[in-house]
Nucleic acid binder design. Structure first.
Lengths: 344, 344
DNA sequence: CGGGACGTTGTAAGCGGTTACATCCGGGTG
DNA sequence: CACCCGGATGTAACCGCTTACAACGTCCCG
């Protein structure tokens, strides 16, 4: 691996000049620049990121830590956290236009993952954390060391920036549609894991919406882990339940898909015998039949805002704390009982 | 941000000792170790990755560069490269057990992306490149500077390690099923982009399989870009075609799903009026109705092997070059015309 | 023709770790 | 009791790059 020194030697200049050329400083005479560039090209020289990071005090890397949910069954391809994938792409596409790169880590909640994030924090200029990857206290102390932006974290954070979506409005609109437009009275809910702030908000919003309509009852309320498998399991529970709800709203799309497929496999017609709804609007929700009625999250926007906010905070650590709530959009499709569109 | 010096000061030891404690060297007296650890805890000290990277000559970061396909239409949520997402998770899960982190970058093929990869190469110990993100020549010169493992790249590479899947066997088996079991005679193919070695192999394998069966004809052969939208577009072309093929095999699942949904939207029954197959076996292919007959890629395995190979090569740059082809598995489901399973 | 100003280039001191090597110290040995 | 040995710790060089500052023309002006 060649170094600045080697380049400087061969070009007959000092390392300072090489550095200036690399960074496009205009205090270099054109012919000197040419000579240096030629050597760089010849050697295939690329500056060492560590050395650069050490010297300027900035690594041009930001981290993204996200929970990986669902059970990792050996031998079985587990379903990946699709929600996160969308986010990763959104964040990456912002960074693409910059010098900054994205360091990624996934993991199941817990001690080891927290340690990993901690050690990762030494390699980055700032960190994006999705959901509750660690207890609030730890998160705050992390945020005291390096810039942190929480994605879909607790909304009541006062020491970190937060970018999240408006679960409440979205879920409320969906509930209103189910109750007012479809006239459902007995509504089931498949909640997400309690350690997800989003999951908690969605359940709470749905609960309140149902409570706001006399004559409506919320039952049963089941809990899953956001995985398709947990949706299927919930469906099996529901199958045995009397009286069955008319609709089951799920805290995310993957569980809704699990419910839907399990029902269909058991001969229950969706939405004829039972309606199902999701939340997130992932790719698969538009692909399943019937198409899933759900609440769309602005993934792209979420990733963009979070990435931009983080970069801003890296620039200026004194920025005032800021919580940003992005709107959601109810996507009424067929699984709730609405007529299927003739074509997509 | 605290440094080793600060920790050393407060603990009343030298930086060498702090370093020893951090790395669990056993030449430190237990009580000294305790004292140092206490200070580290108190300060929330985390060693700086750049400094570490510079000093040991290893950054404990590997990069993954992958193509982002499909058009980025403004205002429209584009479908993400699901295949890559699966791969990312696989790679990340290998790294999880190590000190190493994953630096990610996506981008459309082209000059800017190549430059980005080049600058990224200074921040990592090794690079995983998926498909043909750059011309073979450039790739090789990159590989001369840092360890590179190609995922799903050209199989004939002699200067880099390659990990890929057996497209040929998978596609051949699928074709045999369509021709021999279903008796299709007029087969269409929706190929992937010409810049993908995988896409080329799949087309070629299908072509040969059809040619090997007298009486069978391969027509039409269309080309897409691996996106769902390009599948839908192909379906519209097919709709107008006389005589229409009995089945259209697609070079990946997303295009197959695009074809399938477009057909269904136009009142064509799948597989009744026309059969459709895919390749990859992504999550959505099991969710769509009818379930997609496809060829399964061992994503996990692919990611594992590639990551492991790269780590091995980082350890020992003199390792002999090695190309590894992983088996694929034909997943016969319903979209080819086979009876749908009663339940999943 | 001396001297400032400016444009170009070089020198060298960090940045925050790691680690080879030196040092120190206590205890066992002949 | 001098000596040696080995375990614990400290010292300082070095990793490759950036950058403040110094140095060096050269040109222009008085």
């Amino acid at each position: 691996m060649s170094t600045v020194y080697e380049v400087a030697d061969r070009a007959g200049v000092s390392t300072a000049t090489v550095s200036r050329v690399i960074h496009g400083s205009n205090l270099v005479r054109p012919d000197t620049r040419e000579r240096v560039l030629a050597v760089i090209e010849e050697l295939g020289y690329v500056p060492d990121g560590s050395a650069q990071g050490l010297s300027r005090r900035r690594k041009d890397i930001i981290g993204l830590a996200a929970l990986e949910r669902g059970t990792t069954e050996v031998g079985i391809e587990k379903t990946s956290p699709l929600f996160m994938d969308e986010l990763v792409h959104a964040v990456e596409s912002v960074l693409r236009g910059t010098e900054c790169s994205l360091l990624l880590t996934f993991g199941p909640a817990g001690e080891p993952f927290q340690r990993r994030i901690r050690s990762l924090s030494g390699k980055v200029d700032g960190l994006l954390v999705a959901e509750e990857v660690m207890p609030p206290g730890q998160l705050r102390s992390l945020a005291r060391r390096i810039p942190v932006v929480a994605i879909a974290g607790r909304r009541d954070e006062t020491e970190l920036d937060v970018v999240a979506v408006d679960n409440t409005a979205g879920m409320r609109a969906l509930a209103a549609h189910l109750i007012e437009d479809h006239g459902y009275r007995r509504l089931g809910f498949l909640a997400g894991p309690a350690d997800s702030p989003d999951a908690r908000e969605r359940l709470e919003a749905f609960r309140q919406a149902v409570a706001g309509h006399p004559g409506c009852v919320l039952a049963p309320v089941l809990e899953g882990d956001f995985s398709e498998a947990s949706g299927a399991a919930a469906a099996r529970t529901l199958l045995a339940l009397r009286p069955a709800p008319e609709v089951v709203a799920c805290a995310n799309d993957q569980m809704a898909i699990g419910v839907l497929l399990q029902f269909q496999g058991s001969g229950v017609a969706i939405p004829g015998d039972m309606a199902v709804t999701g939340f997130d609007d992932i790719y698969a929700s538009r692909v399943v039949a019937p198409q899933l009625t759900t609440v769309g999250q602005p993934f792209r926007e979420l990733g963009h805002r979070a990435a931009q906010r983080l970069r801003a905070r890296i620039e200026d650590r004194e920025l005032p704390q800021h919580t940003e709530i992005l709107p959601t959009r109810c996507a009424i499709r067929a699984s709730c009982g609405c007529p299927a569109p003739g074509s997509r």
